[in-house]
Computed example of a mutant assay.
Amino acid sequence: MEMILVSACLLGVNCKYDGKNNYNRELVDLLNGKAIVPVCPEQLGGLTTPRIAAEIQNGDGSDVVENSFKVLTKEGVDVSEAFIKGAKETLYIAMSMCITQAFLKAKSPSCGSGKIYDGTFSGVLRSGDGVTTYLLKKNGIKVFTENDFLIE
Rank of each mutant, 00 (worst) to 15 (best):
G12T: 09
L91I: 03
Y117H: 09
C98N: 15
T145H: 13
A8L: 04
S7M: 05
K20C: 01
T120G: 04
K20S: 08
A54C: 15
D129L: 08
R126G: 06
I52Q: 12
G76L: 01
K137V: 02
L44G: 07
V65H: 05
L44F: 07
K85L: 11
I84T: 12
T49I: 15
M1F: 08
I52N: 14
A87L: 03
I141S: 08
Y134N: 03
L135P: 12
T132Y: 04
Q57A: 00
A102M: 11
N14H: 06
L47N: 12
G130K: 04
P38H: 00
D60K: 00
C9W: 10
T49V: 15
A8W: 04
N147D: 14
T90A: 04
L31S: 02
S122C: 10
L104A: 01
I141E: 08
K88E: 15
K70S: 11
G33P: 05
V131T: 15
E75P: 00
N32Y: 14
Q57V: 02
S96H: 01
K107A: 00
I141A: 07
N14G: 04
A35S: 15
I116F: 11
N21I: 11
N67F: 01
G46L: 06
G33E: 06
E55W: 08
E26S: 12
R51L: 03
A53H: 00
A8R: 06
K115N: 02
L10W: 09
I116R: 12
L125I: 13
F69T: 12
E66W: 00
G86Y: 05
K115A: 01
M97Q: 10
L27F: 06
V6Y: 06
A54Q: 06
I84P: 10
S96F: 00
V143E: 09
L27A: 10
L135Q: 11
V77K: 11
K16E: 08
L150G: 07
G86W: 05
S68Q: 06
